[in-house]
């Protein structure tokens, strides 16, 4: 159906020639959903597509989800064959640099997310979440709750540059408070099941634990499961991140004594990027109230915010999948 429509559109474009409006085609390439957060990001991408295509008939958005970086490069190549006007890339890793550069040099309007490319000046806009603030805000909050003392355990994500920044930030904050003891750091691979196993081992190994910090909410749920099964009563705080819907709900309703806060690392960053790509490729300007240059900014760092009971409802998106 979609194909027929597409073909029809192309025909209209060719035949309609002069009076056909310019159609802006935006290609989006991002990882497929392998964990909750990315699942949310996929959902946001779809939402941006639906919203834009409803709002503006001159916009067409094509989404490509890929399981690995080789596939992602192939996807981008395919999008270039299809002659997209703008390209949004949420990279698996920096291996996409050369293909992104190729797209940019072909005159495609390029929006890159996160620390995805290893070269400057090959994109129009660069958007990222603030990985450093993400754990800094979280850790500062946690330290305060702990009364700046006690035993802390850490479960990190898949070993990767992003993960290293986050973990290093946590360690840096902990160092400021000599009475907080970081007992152990183990990877939970952004995977609930792996995190559960890691937590089970922790519980065997450490007799007194005060707080557990996991690199995202998925892993926090796994760790908390292990803790509940153990029947122990020593842990006072669990902190994850990334704002899973169920976790935000718990914070909002204050229904879980162990979970009192979360930190945003918004999966909607992809939707934001798509919007910027559309605005950018159409050559539209920013709101005139801005005193600066009114073209879009080249580098955007989205803030990480601490979510507590007071502001949780602002971050609760009931229709999001996770």
């Amino acid at each position: 159906m979609k194909k027929v429509l597409l073909a029809l559109l192309i025909v209209t474009m060719v035949v309609g020639g002069a009076y056909a409006q310019k159609v802006y085609r935006v290609g989006v390439s991002m990882p497929s959903a392998t964990h909750g957060w990315m699942g949310n990001a996929n959902w946001w991408a779809n939402r941006a597509k639906t919203d834009w295509e409803k709002r503006d008939k001159t916009v067409q958005i094509e989404l490509k989800f890929s399981g690995n970086v080789n596939q992602q490069v192939a996807d981008i190549e395919d999008l270039l064959v299809k002659k997209v006007d703008a390209l949004v890339v949420f990279p698996h890793d920096t291996s996409v640099t050369s293909i992104v550069e190729k797209a940019f040099n072909q005159g495609v309007y390029v929006v890159v997310l996160d620390r995805g490319v290893s070269k400057e000046g090959i994109y129009d806009i660069y958007i990222t979440n603030d990985d450093e603030a993400y754990t800094r805000k979280g850790m500062e909050w946690l330290a305060k709750q702990m009364g700046y003392k006690g035993n802390l355990l850490l479960i990190t994500g898949i070993p990767s540059p992003i993960d290293t920044i986050r973990t290093d930030t946590i360690k840096e904050v902990v160092k400021k408070y000599p009475n907080i003891k970081l007992l152990d750091v183990q990877p939970g691979d952004w995977n609930r099941q792996k995190s559960l196993t890691v937590m089970e081992n922790y519980l065997q190994k450490y007799k007194q634990i005060d707080a557990v910090y996991t690199a995202d909410d998925d892993m926090m749920l796994g760790a908390m499961q292990a803790y509940k099964e153990s029947g122990r009563k020593d842990i006072k705080y669990f902190l994850g991140g990334g704002c899973l819907k169920s976790v935000i709900k718990e914070i909002m309703d204050d229904s879980n004594p162990l979970v009192k806060a979360d930190v945003t690392y918004s999966p909607s960053v992809i939707a934001t990027s798509i919007s910027y790509a559309v605005i950018g490729v159409k050559g539209e300007k920013l709101n005139p109230n801005v005193y600066q240059v009114r073209a879009l900014p080249r580098r955007i760092i989205l803030p990480s915010e601490l979510v507590t009971r007071e502001n949780a409802k602002d971050f609760y998106v009931p229709e999001a999948p996770f």
């Binding site: 690995n68 970086v69 890793d93 291996s95 640099t97 050369s98 990767s160």
Partner: peptide, 18 residues
């Protein structure tokens, strides 16, 4: 050839599943 294509080697992803 693949490393040249990317001009970089990302150790967690390179050749994964090949």
């Amino acid at each position: 050839l693949l490393a040249a294509r990317f001009n970089t080697v990302s150790t967690p992803n390179f050749g994964l599943g090949s």
